[in-house]
């Protein structure tokens, strides 16, 4: 789980993990309680209880503001089976998850590897630029991409007109066939730099001698990548991949919410945005929470499978 931790102050050379205190003192208990209690109360109140409520409320129908809450068992879930819009949102979520993960992780790894191995000049500058999308808010990114995709005066269509490629012009956010991929591009734009910078910093700590030695054996750069770079950053890759599932599901929601609102005609709806819509626009909170349960189960299951599929003994260098 944990990747490398920050280095402690360098003037200390004592062993690294002395968590145990030798002697328990009187009053320790009260001190521990005082320190823990505020954090635990907040955690339970605003994370544990709401999470439990997602599951509990999925068995009720509730229109929200009336106190009338009726237990309906699995009715909300059986309704999901007949809801074509839910299936569509699920399909969109899976599609975005697969495509964005493959593209972001693949490109991120590849670019980080060549940038680290080639020792480009001005690396710090590129790193600075690449990380910029990660500090921008999703609303800003949505606004930027809405401006790029704008039908008349957008950067994309404007450029195509300029190059006399009018035939390639599209209503990027208005065409049901391509709107999801327009969102996917924005997702990759947002996250690629983050993972590149992350992998670069973990690749930079691989000792150069390893590459020199295998270079003398006549290994090609591709081979070096698979036999040295990849195994040595595997733990890092594994952590990011496991968490990327959740963050991709989440990012697709916030981007869709800010950029397309799920439209046109529900063609870019994803699970979380559909849940949000059911809860607030439609005021069927119980049904919305049933969708929430599906999201929880799905993203947890995929994260679990990813982390199972990528498990290895940690490798030291």
């Amino acid at each position: 789980m944990a990747t490398t931790t920050s280095t402690p102050p360098s003037d200390i050379s004592a062993p690294a993990r002395p968590a145990r205190r030798s002697a328990r003192r009187r009053g320790d208990g009260r001190f521990v309680l005082a320190c823990l209690l505020p954090a635990l109360v907040l955690f339970v109140l605003f994370m544990v209880v709401p999470t439990v409520n997602v599951f509990r409320m999925s068995f009720y129908t509730w229109s929200g503001f009336s106190p009338d809450m009726r237990f309906v068992g699995f009715d909300n879930f059986t309704r999901l089976f007949e809801d074509a819009q839910f299936v569509r949102a699920f399909q969109n979520t899976v599609a975005l998850l697969v495509v964005v993960t493959v593209v972001t992780m693949g490109m991120g790894l590849f670019l980080a590897a060549i940038m680290t191995r080639q020792r480009l000049r001005g690396r710090n500058f590129y790193r600075f630029v690449l990380y910029v999308p990660n500090v921008l808010s999703v609303v800003v990114i949505a606004a930027i991409f809405s401006a790029i995709y704008d039908q008349q005066n957008g950067l994309l269509n404007g450029t195509l007109r300029l190059l006399s490629l009018d035939g390639l012009q599209q209503v990027w956010l208005g065409n049901q066939e391509i709107v999801l991929w327009s969102v996917a591009i924005a997702m990759v734009w947002q996250s690629l730099g983050y993972y590149m910078v992350l992998y670069m910093s973990s690749m930079a700590s691989i000792p150069e001698e390893l590459y020199e030695a295998s270079g003398l054996d006549g290994a090609s750069p591709t081979r070096q990548f698979f036999s040295i770079t990849l195994p040595l950053i595997w733990q890092n890759l594994r952590t990011t991949l496991t968490f990327f599932v959740m963050s991709a599901v989440n990012l697709s929601f916030v981007l869709v919410r800010a950029m397309t609102g799920g439209g046109p005609d529900g063609s870019s709806e994803v699970l979380l945005s559909y849940m949000y819509k059911q809860a607030y626009t439609n005021s069927s909170y119980g049904y919305g929470m049933a969708i929430g349960v599906v999201i929880f189960a799905f993203s947890f299951l995929v994260s679990l499978l990813v982390s199972r599929a990528t498990r290895r003994e940690p490798l030291q260098f």
Partner: peptide, 17 residues
């Protein structure tokens, strides 16, 4: 995954999964 998304339905969702 990309192709199956174009048709809406439980069948294509199953294929995608």
């Amino acid at each position: 995954v990309v192709i199956a998304r174009t048709t809406v339905g439980w069948g294509s969702l199953a294929i995608m999964l």
